[in-house]
Design a binder for these strands. Structure first.
Lengths: 157, 157
DNA sequence: TATTGTTATACTCTATAACTATA
DNA sequence: TATAGTTATAGAGTATAACAATA
């Protein structure tokens, strides 16, 4: 039987992981002149190709107003351009500049390199155990969030 | 031999965990009228007892100016008070109100409950594998951050 | 002279509401 | 009338720099 203390310690590990991962990624993004939110937008743009701000707002689950600001900053930084939409004159198409496309590739590369840094030297047995545990954790969290999101309102505590 | 794709997928699991955990905690804090930064301050205050803003600034690794703002908000919300420091008239002591102390206990309880939610029903074998993997992951991340922080300046990519 | 906390200023992320141009 | 994106306004977190009071 496991003690609550051991469970609490395991949660501490997860939370430290969150903090360190965040620091590492923030630092790496800053080297490219990016923030987390702006990088997320580039990431979406990369997987979707040129798209409207409305599409980006829905994809990132933020307000249209917020997208205006992020695209403003990314355009100013030379990462993206705003083009008129060919069919709908209300809309604008956000597209990569050459520089933006290069940086987006860098983001993808950086992520691969992070994955290798974290996992490449890990023995298979350990890796499998970690993945198995992470999947179990995610299943519990998803269930919890679904329960709390769906109006029920209660939640822990 | 593991493929880069499997490593990338494992990183995706970790990143999804980060996102969901963040959502869950943000939601829980909002129920107590708190944000992440304000809760972190309360958390420090709980483990240290009444202390100066300078101490809090160092503990949370943010600017003194930032602490002024957080304490302003927490004082306005009735979580903490500012008292004159007995020995040093430049400094102020930040202390819990009754309500703040109660909420801080709630935070600790909520964390225990989250740990139980995530781990209590997890088989020992799976739990051990997860903890083992997490520790290995953390070791790599700490090393990476230390390398990148210490002036070397290079880093991945 | 050094330290504590504040005011002043600024940047980022975020939201809602009102408005413009277009469908 | 509905939609895309903007301006206007606001709140939260963060930073640096200048300044006050006190050590």
């Amino acid at each position: 039987m496991r003690t609550p203390e051991r469970n609490a310690t395991a949660l501490d590990l997860v939370l430290e992981l969150v903090v360190l991962l965040n620091e590492d990624m923030t630092r790496a993004l800053a080297r490219d002149g990016l923030t987390g939110s702006r990088a997320r937008l580039l990431w979406e743009l990369r997987s979707r190709g040129p798209c409207t701000q409305k599409v980006l707002a829905d994809a990132l689950a933020v307000s249209p107003r917020n997208i205006t600001g992020l695209v403003d900053a990314l355009a100013e930084g030379g990462f993206v351009t705003r083009e008129p939409h060919p069919n709908d004159r209300r809309a604008t198409l956000v597209s990569f500049t050459r520089h933006g496309a290069r940086i987006a590739r860098n983001l993808a590369e950086g992520r691969e390199q992070l994955a290798e840094l974290l996992f490449a030297t890990m023995p298979d047995r350990q890796f499998d155990g970690l993945v198995d545990g992470l999947e179990a954790l995610l299943a519990r969290l998803r269930a919890e969030l679904a329960a709390n999101t769906s109006s029920t309102k209660g939640g822990r505590r």
